[in-house]
Simulated assay, not measured.
Amino acid sequence: MDKFTNDLWKVLNGYYYSFLKALPRLALALVLFLVFMFLARQIRRWLIPRLTRNTDDTLLTGFLGDIGYWLMLILGLSVALGTIGLNGAVTNILAGAGLSAFILGFALKDIGENFLAGILLAFKRPFKIGDLVETQGVHGRIIDLSLRETIIKTLDGKDVYVPNGGILKSPLYNYSVDNFLRLEFSVDLDNRENYKRAIPLIKKALLDTTGVLHDTDRVPTVSIEETKSNALCMKICFWIKSHETETQAPAIKTEAIQNVLTMLRENGFSQPETESETKG
């Protein structure tokens, strides 16, 4: 028992003196890493304003600033590991542990995919800060793009973090590219009514609505969408500017519907009877 205790004490004592011997290098590595962390922050602060002078794309400048920050941080980590002599050890471990390397690579696959997708999105620029977009069931405005995800604020105020890889592989609808948006609604007319006379009246009601565009290539359209047993379903489409779609679109659409119904009623057009009214 005494021999075991003495051997254990010698081993622990050896680790203790090894730690004391390596302590200066550990302290130097920590200082070097903190210095590189400070430099990384300064590079990002220095880089972003200078990039902003040459472009108004805040999405791209912020992304490039983040890349500069992380590159400097990775360099600092490499220097710190080299200071304490772990470069060779890490290399040997990664070279010898094939299974571990495979598991690590599989675990980081999504991170790497999202990182590369973020780079492509930053340079391809299918959207910019403030654009109204829809992707993967998320509808809202772009507020930021990071190395891993794109942040979208939904119209009901939620911040959604969408992975960059998913955006790159899924359809992306950008409603702010040309600042135009088409709205539509349907109105049922009694199938005995003269729909040819109703169409110009509906168009006039739309053109009298504030916010509805009158451009030659974006004029309102009215057509018969379907026929029912006692009704003609009229499909009505019109265009608006989409700068403030969240607030403007519902108000303009509501006013358009009211104007159309009022116009039809004032000109003697009737709505089809419902099933309950027919039975009554």
Rank of each mutant, 00 (worst) to 15 (best):
D215A: 09
K21P: 01
F63M: 04
G96D: 11
Q42E: 14
L132M: 09
Y195Q: 14
W70V: 10
F185R: 04
S186R: 14
S170K: 09
S242V: 00
I257K: 14
V212D: 02
F180K: 12
N114E: 07
C233N: 15
G112F: 14
V11N: 12
T274F: 05
S18M: 08
E246V: 13
N179D: 12
I252K: 00
S223A: 11
Q271L: 08
V133F: 03
L39Q: 04
L181R: 08
N194T: 08
N92G: 12
A101E: 09
T245I: 10
V133A: 01
R148S: 08
E113S: 12
L8E: 10
G105P: 02
Q248M: 13
T209R: 07
T52A: 13
L23R: 11
F115T: 06
D188M: 13
Y69P: 00
I252W: 02
V79P: 00
D131Q: 06
T210F: 11
N13F: 11
W239C: 00
M234S: 07
I152W: 07
E275I: 12
L51W: 05
F4S: 07
V219T: 10
T247Y: 05
W70G: 06
T52D: 15
F185K: 03
D215G: 06
L147S: 05
L51R: 03
F238R: 10
D159G: 03
Y69Q: 04
Y175K: 01
A95I: 07
M1K: 13
K204M: 11
R45I: 07
A122C: 07
D156C: 00
L59G: 03
I119C: 08
L132S: 15
N6R: 14
L71S: 05
